[in-house]
Nucleic acid binder design. Structure first.
Lengths: 219, 219, 219, 219
DNA sequence: AATGAATGAGCCTTCATTCAT
DNA sequence: GATGAATGAAGGCTCATTCAT
């Protein structure tokens, strides 16, 4: 498979193909997306997919990887990893980062859609996602919560809190279609998303603080 | 949990078709499921789908509706609706009910899988789900939280809390594939699920209580 | 796969398909023959091959079997099997039968061509040919030669003589293209074929007789 | 058997291509062999075939010609052409030479396979074979048999005897797949092949001698 | 002279659907 | 009312070939 520099000339067929593939796979899913459609939109020959990526599935995996690279270029959670900051602030930063990334509806939005589709209906490519994105983020979040709990919590409680927070955020992605219909104000604009992130942070911080007290009380 | 005898005569082709369709659509998704496979498993003619349901999509919509009817027979949240109970208890009941329904891996599990697949990848049939299942549940949860907040919260805060709780629960469904790989202990057996529900309830209750105090404090 | 009676209504798509397939496979070989061409000539849909025979290869195997059934309808070597006749006469009968079958250029000729193609370039289907046609004929020929040699020959000599005779006959099939160019008189018409068969029989009989003498001489 | 050093520089792409092409065409046949495979094995660019040989078919024809040149370097029938030897001996020599050439399974075997494939399934390239290899050999064999028959035989009998002998030999090539399964001892090793050649020679000589007597008898 | 990226024609197959019975 | 034989559209993929460099 020919090498493709992700930042390379977007005029190159392989790059056009990759970008279009992300869009089309996100819109229709792996099965419903057709190679013919992707090639037509990318203005390349039908055989190009097989030429560059060996198969439709090969293209899918590369598209997934590409989507991550793109999305991570625009959202960074470096600040949330800064352990010199108070954990409360780091939690706010993290949730803000994560929610914004999930809801990014700019030209990058499709990447997130492709990824959440993959999570809901996992293929062999899921391992790529987990290794590249989920695990590092879980680790950061776990560190933050660990500090909030003052190191007193066991591993399992930590993980449950991680899931509580991720769950609140992912809701906006996975059940997006429902939110769009029942509670559109929550994601109407950038300010609304900010407010939603604020809610999740306050909600979770309150819960963790309370858990902390409960753990401390025996002392 | 009340036993259900309402199922129509399973000898009728149309009913066999419906049951099998739920299983197959849940397992493979709309596109990958084939009419031939469904008919073969249901021991009916290939043309039966078109005969009884007009098209593959027609069968899909009916299967979705059927899945709801079945799943709601086995999981009831009547108790959570009982407004004479203290809202804290009702919240526990609701979360317990909801999480168990989501994770039901018995022969009924396929229905849930079909439904969450539909949410992650919505088709025209999504409206059916929303009307039949989501809205009533949101209403109940909203009522519970409203009481916990002592009626002081505005509509939007209420909805945000509803989403916080649903999000924590749905995480177990939508990101099931990730949980299976990274945190399988959380859903290992009935007791583990119980514990997960317990965590969500405690976590959320703590958060809401704290929010409540924050709202009260100005007084 | 739907059952096809070999003598059944030639109007049935499956039968038309089979007949055409024999012709096309014989003419172009397995790989060069296209399903589209076969279907077009048989006036059936492109999907018919997969419907009736599961795959192109399935059709090929059935076509091979069909070719045998057809060819054997028109050429019988019953007389050559009649052990009450003198073996010299039986050898003449056998060679005559075998050569005529090989060179049958009537509407049945294509079947033979298909078969010899399969022998020259064996596929998995070759076992079918061997089991159905080669072995029984070898057995008959072996019996005849055994009697000519008066039972004195060992198994290996017997087999070598079988091969000598078959080789002389098969030459007309396998190297047909060369004979057509270098020695067309040998197969010009029915009389010429008769004469060719006569030659092979006389030639072989003479050889075997001589071998017989050589074996007897020690006495 | 004279050693051959005439092969052109094997470092040249065009020569590597030719050698590999013979192997691949022999193994897979014209259609199933792919230009890409040949080029890959020959370590040259995909476009090389079209560049050097104009087309896949052009390469095929050159490969065929090349195969002859190679095979004739290693098997010579000069001795069989020596008219000072007794014709009986020359016949033995000829058959021995011919059978060994056909069954040569050394690294040269592929050439023979390619050639017999071409005979069984003739393409336009067949004329090359006939002109270069078949006709000269037939002439030699005809001369030998003519002498065995004492010049009394007519042209057509001569040709029939030629075919009887060639047929017995070619059997080992064309029906190789059947011999492999039914009578593998006949070609197990060099000694077995020798014995097979011996049989054909004895068998044919006996037949011809007998024919000779029959022709003489009227005298 | 030689390359390799890119093409386009065509192939086998799958599948939902139809229609005569 | 229900069947199953038959269809046609479309999809992924392979391969020889071309063309700019």
């Amino acid at each position: 498979m020919p090498e493709a520099h992700l930042t390379a000339n977007p005029e190159l067929p392989i790059n056009r193909l990759l970008q279009i593939a992300v869009e089309v796979f996100a819109e229709h899913g792996f099965r419903d997306a057709t190679v013919r459609d992707i090639c037509a939109r990318a203005n390349v020959n039908v055989a190009a997919v097989n030429y560059y990526f060996r198969s439709k599935e090969g293209l899918y995996i590369e598209a997934l990887t590409f989507a991550f690279a793109e999305i991570n270029k625009h959202h960074s959670y470096e600040a949330a990893q800064d352990s010199s900051l108070p954990p409360e602030q780091r939690l706010h930063l993290f949730i803000n980062y994560f929610l914004n990334k999930l809801l990014d509806d700019s030209h990058l939005g499709v990447q997130g859609k492709l990824i959440s589709r993959e999570i809901a209906e996992p293929t062999k490519a899921l391992d790529i996602i987990i290794a590249k994105a989920v695990i590092p983020q879980c680790t950061v979040l776990e560190d933050i919560i660990g500090r909030l709990l003052g190191g007193r919590a066991d591993k399992i409680t930590l993980q449950r809190c991680v899931m509580s927070i991720l769950g609140q955020c992912l809701m906006f992605k996975h059940s997006r279609s429902i939110i769009d219909r029942l509670f559109p104000e929550a994601i109407a604009d950038q300010a609304a998303i900010q407010a939603s992130a604020q809610h999740i942070a306050v909600f979770s911080l309150a819960a963790i603080k309370q858990l902390n007290l409960a753990t401390e009380s025996p002392l």
